[in-house]
Amino acid sequence: MKLILHIGTGKTGTTALQQFLCANARKLREHGIHYAAPPDEFNFNSITNAQLLTGLDKFRTFFLHHLAEAERAGAHTIIASSEILYSIRWRARCVGKKSSADALFEEHNLVGRLRASIPEEMECHVLCYVRRPDHWLESVYNQNVKSGILFTGDVIDFLGMTEDMLDYHRCLSIWREVFGSSACSVRVYESALPNLIGDFVEHVLQSVDISSFTRSHLRANERLSRDVLEYKRLRNKNIPDYERRLESRILALVDKRIINPSNNHEYLSPDERAALLSSLEPSMDRLRTEFALPPFPRFNLDAARASWRSYPGLSLEKGREIEFHYNAVQRQIGFRLERLVIRAAALTRRRLPFLSWFLDFARASRVRRLLLEAANPFR
């Protein structure tokens, strides 16, 4: 049995690819391919999160279950995808407040545990897409201000937290050490555009004809406009972690109501961008050499300086417009009910911790999903 383990990176079309694979799981099985994900999920991020946050060995149970499923279906290949796998080092630092060195050790340890959890019958191949580091940094920064760790700093502050993740060669060397160099491959995100799914099918699935497969025409995981993102960044310090997903959905609706929003998403100045790329050039050269990669898009400093327009910040007038729409959206009955339930659950965890098992069960089951769906007509 062959296992294709897609480890990210995030912000390289990962969500769209995962949703495509999940939506076409039945048709993939007709070609002998089993897509592995927990029920009602389109990736196995929840398994990776559980492994990192609780220390419980969820990986082996997950792979054994899907190995049995694949064998029953007569499949010869299993695909599993979790972009969190690439970013374990960074998440370990955020969750456990660990130093870079401790997190690096933790990442190597966790990748090793992952490898040991994969049944011997599986021939594992690790796949990772990478993006030019400055563009990846800006996209991840946007994502984390919008819905991730409720970040409140600017992009340079964020760079200080994520700089070691931009060293693709060092990060992926861990995977080569654990899985073997012949079992790891890397592809350049920009070279795969404009059809990342087509690139994945051509170079990973190869002989599979996807002409009859379901294709989503919606962009997955769209970013907020710059003005709404700045509004969200300023609010983040006052948002409890357990309400971050709710706030993200509210702001996504607000974003659709704003008139003439700014879409200036160049968070780095030309000189900051040039300095970052220069510092990472040795790592990028080693990555291209060892994985036989095409070059990343070139950066022209003079052209960037000529076209650079810095973001002036959120104006008072635009801030008032966003605030008006935010208040209107979050007062909708569906969102008010959801916020009430979330806060009641958080209070219960603090005051009555012995009931946490019941809340975890409700969250893992379809109960929570059904409640949210029931509230949709009121939004």
Rank of each mutant, 00 (worst) to 15 (best):
L3P: 07
H6E: 00
H6Q: 00
H6P: 00
I7V: 12
T12E: 04
T12D: 00
T14K: 01
Q19W: 07
Q19P: 04
F20S: 05
L21Y: 06
L21N: 04
A23L: 02
A23C: 06
A23W: 05
N24W: 08
R26A: 14
K27F: 04
A36R: 07
I47Y: 03
I47C: 06
T48Q: 09
Q51F: 15
L52M: 14
G55P: 12
R60G: 10
A68L: 05
A68H: 10
A70I: 04
H76D: 11
I78A: 08
I78W: 01
E83F: 04
E83W: 06
L85T: 01
S87R: 08
S87V: 10
I88Y: 03
R89L: 14
A92D: 14
R93G: 11
S100A: 14
A103T: 09
R115N: 11
P119R: 02
E120G: 03
V126S: 03
C128G: 07
R132Y: 07
P133Q: 09
P133S: 08
H135T: 11
Y141L: 04
K146F: 13
T152E: 15
V155P: 04
I156E: 11
I156Q: 13
F158M: 04
F158N: 05
G160D: 11
M161I: 05
E163A: 15
Y168Q: 05
L172D: 03
S173D: 12
W175F: 13
R176E: 14
V178S: 10
V178L: 12
V178Y: 13
F179V: 06
S181G: 02
S182D: 13
A183M: 07
S185E: 08
S185K: 12
L196T: 07
V201S: 01
V201N: 06
V204F: 00
L205I: 04
S207W: 02
R215M: 09
S225A: 12
D227L: 11
D227W: 08
N236Y: 01
I239K: 12
P240D: 07
Y242E: 15
Y242C: 08
L246T: 01
A252E: 15
L253Q: 15
K256W: 03
E281V: 00
P282S: 08
M284Q: 13
R288H: 06
T289N: 14
F291C: 02
A292S: 15
A292R: 04
P294S: 09
P294W: 00
A303W: 07
A304E: 09
R305G: 04
A306S: 15
W308S: 07
R309W: 03
R309V: 13
S310K: 10
G319P: 07
G319D: 13
E323M: 08
F324S: 14
R331E: 15
G334S: 09
G334V: 06
I342K: 11
R343C: 11
R343A: 09
R343N: 15
A346N: 06
A346M: 09
A346L: 03
R349I: 00
R349H: 01
L352I: 15
W357M: 05
R363Y: 14
A364M: 11
A364G: 15
S365W: 09
E373K: 14
N376D: 13
P377S: 01
